[in-house]
Design a protein around this nucleic acid. Structure first.
Lengths: 246, 246
DNA sequence: GTCTTATAACTGACTGGTCAGTTCCAAGAC
DNA sequence: GTCTTGGAACTGACCAGTCAGTTATAAGAC
């Protein structure tokens, strides 16, 4: 049941990449072995183990997002990373270790980015919240950044450990910080008397809904994603409401 | 690729259940065959084909939600429905037909429930939107009702046909109806000049965020789900904003 | 009522295929 | 030469889907 709890001892031998090989323009051995000559122009092995784990993780993230964890094959992940299946197991002990490493790798950057900004900043909480939303919008433009929460949400029921990891690293910091910010806004007379805890949902929900509609169902404004416009529209409503007179 | 489009020819031989068997208090053969006597009290199987498809679908929905489509085993679905694996294939031609039937079965009820209510009602759009949100809240209290969109969102990348089915039956009706409603609110002077299309995200997003936080990550208010309170809090913000003076 | 026959509902062993994880040897780096 | 790296064949488990056989129920014969 909970063999999920098997801790990963990911090798991850150094993440600083040396770039011994030219990276791009890799000959990669023409697939059709035409002619009889066994010519192997260009190096068959690239010998840059340091960059490999990240490449494998990128490939795995792409395929997990596309097909889901269970349906994604290690063979395909390896192929996308430009290596063979066996090589994957040089860097990661199991398929599950891949998803764990993906989430862990993404946690560092995410954690710092937005939290300090809002937990510490003094001044009108409206400005802080607006700034946070705009940063969030800028982040979500990258497909890569969006893929992580998507993957976590999708696989959460199957991998409670990973969901908890994410929750602890991201949500348990962002949600309380936002709540505190709203509470301060009330205390300092900027906000009306509302429930700070529940209001957090009103702050982030519209962005979530926008991404779900666009990403999952392909429902988006005529002029593309329009995340900027969405966020400005949302900020206007969040602080001043829909009603005209008010 | 799109073998999803294979239409399901589900037998579903009449949904009016005959209830030949007493339904409840079914002996169902005590699982532990205690004593040496091979006594088989009660019928070995129940013979009520009319109720079976729905039971299978219920079991399948539960397991798909728990483990995801790919990881759920037909054997487990059958066991939860109280029949054998082979019997599942008496009613549904394939595993995929299960997920299709689940979504189709859920579509009828959902479609009617909320759309007419908001598309047609005249009067202050604020009251209509409030009413819609409250109905939505009441619906989402049932774990069953929540499971369908969850499943669709989760499996959408793997089953674009199903995502589109859901989009067409639900979203393509709800989103435009809400958009029109907001537009009318603007035209009639109830709402400020905002982008109606984007504002739809502000109307439904907070509820979505609440359900994701609660359902996926177990983050909920001290006093339980509190959907009612969330919705009232959201309505207050949506129409009049957070700001005090405004 | 009891017996016989027909058929619908169901079972579970089996098959064919897929895939995670292993192994081992060849090829490259140094 | 030795050490490192990669690849592809292999293994073993797992599982969707099949099918020949079994059991319950209904209908008709008497």
């Amino acid at each position: 049941m909970t063999e999920t709890s098997r801790k990963l001892d990911t090798p991850r031998r150094g993440s600083a990449r040396r770039d011994l090989a030219p990276a791009d323009s890799v000959p990669r051995e023409s697939p059709d072995s035409r002619e009889t000559t066994p010519r192997h122009e260009g190096p068959k092995f690239r010998r840059r183990a340091d960059a490999r784990p990240d490449e494998v993780l990128d490939a795995a993230l792409a395929l997990f997002t596309e097909k889901g964890f269970a349906a994604a094959r290690i063979d395909d992940i390896a192929q996308r990373a430009g290596i063979s299946k066996g090589a994957v197991y040089l860097y990661f002990p199991s398929k599950q270790a891949l998803i764990e490493a993906i989430v862990e790798r993404a946690l560092g950057p995410i954690a710092e980015e937005a939290i300090e900004r809002l937990a510490t900043l003094p001044g009108d909480p409206r400005l802080v919240i607006s700034s946070v939303l705009r940063v969030l919008g800028r982040q979500l433009t990258s497909a890569q950044a969006l893929a992580i929460p998507r993957l976590v949400i999708r696989e959460a029921p199957s991998f409670p450990d990973i969901a908890e990891l994410y929750r602890r690293a991201v949500l348990d910091r962002v949600v309380p910080a936002l709540t505190a910010l709203i509470r301060r806004g009330i205390a300092e007379g900027h906000f009306r008397q509302i429930d700070a805890e529940l209001t957090v949902r009103s702050v982030v929900g519209p962005v979530l809904a926008h991404m779900v509609l666009a990403d999952i169902f392909g429902i988006l404004p005529a002029d593309g994603l329009a995340l900027d416009r969405l966020i400005e529209n949302h900020i206007a409503i969040l602080f001043d409401g829909l009603s005209l007179k008010a």
